[in-house]
């Protein structure tokens, strides 16, 4: 027992180091003065010059802004569609098309991205021939593509949350006189809100990060941030990308820290509530 505990713990520590060392090295070398990136230049480091360079790089800023807009719209639309799909799968019981919907929402999660990208582009080309819309490829087609693969993830998150809570809650609301739409707004929505929020964040991250599908459905003048980064790093490391990575890690870390503090606060409140309930039992 002890020996295996030791073994798995060692694996855990090594695994975590494996996960974090690359990120750490990116952060460290973002403050390196040398153009050689991975050779530390002790004389002139640390320096912020790559951050300054980044902030004046028009191409990257424009791409980041485009990615941001696409991710915001895609995540929001994906949440609406994914919530509907999750509701349908978790609450409508057996209906015609259930298998179809279930299949079409899990398949994009594992589908190799090159195939999804290719198929979406061919669709857009065919649509343009047939109905004249969308006009060429660009931000619109990228957004449509992102919504499609993001909604699959939202569906899974919302569906599992809905499966986790008692359907009797919705029945009780209806029994007390609330019509279906009101049941959704007053009972279902508040209860699945955490799932919707994490689904939105997940969708935003996936959209913000996507390269392969985007490359297929993007056109000239619609380069997203991952596309710009990819074209830069394809031919080697560049120091300003390290700076960019550091900023992104910082943003995520801040978000996680805030949510951890919030969760801990909720946890403490929960413990207090349980003590109250225990007292009530006396």
């Amino acid at each position: 027992m002890r020996a295996r505990g030791l073994f798995t713990r060692t694996a855990l520590v090594l695994g975590l180091m494996f996960l974090y060392l690359p990120i750490l090295s990116m952060i460290v070398f973002s403050f390196n003065n040398s153009r050689l990136v991975t050779v530390w230049d002790p004389a002139h480091s640390p320096t912020l010059k790559w951050y300054v360079a980044l902030m004046s790089n028009e191409q990257i800023l424009r791409a980041a802004w485009l990615s941001m807009r696409i991710a915001l719209i895609s995540a929001s639309a994906a949440v609406v569609l994914g919530t509907l799909a999750g509701m349908a799968l978790a609450r409508l019981g057996a209906f015609r098309g259930r298998m179809l919907l279930a299949g079409m929402t899990t398949a994009p999660i594992v589908m190799p991205e090159v195939i999804t990208g290719l198929s979406l582009l061919l669709l857009f080309v065919a649509m343009q021939q047939l109905i004249g819309w969308p006009k060429g490829v660009g931000a619109v087609t990228i957004t449509l593509a992102h919504i499609t693969f993001c909604m699959a993830y939202v569906t899974v998150v919302v569906q599992s949350r809905l499966s986790g809570f008692d359907e009797a809650l919705e029945e009780a609301a209806m029994d007390l006189g609330a019509r279906p739409l009101r049941v959704f707004l007053r009972i279902t929505l508040p209860l699945i809100l955490p799932a919707i929020a994490s689904g939105w964040l997940l969708a935003f991250t996936l959209s913000w990060d996507d390269l392969v599908i985007t490359q297929f459905v993007a056109g000239p003048g619609s380069s997203t941030l991952p596309m710009v980064i990819f074209s830069k790093v394809r031919f080697g490391v560049t120091p300003d990308v390290n700076a960019l990575a550091t900023i992104m890690v910082l943003i995520v870390a801040t978000g996680i820290a805030i949510s951890t503090v919030w969760m801990r606060y909720r946890q403490q409140r929960r413990v207090r509530d349980l003590q109250l309930a225990a007292l009530a039992n006396l």
Binding site: P22, M26, V249
Partner: peptide
């Protein structure tokens, strides 16, 4: 800690290995 890296860019995390391995 396991999920955290997933929230940072996939592309940049792969890129980080170029700096480590070259």
């Amino acid at each position: 800690l396991i999920v955290l890296p997933f929230w940072t860019s996939f592309l940049l995390r792969v890129y980080a290995w170029i700096g480590l391995l070259k």
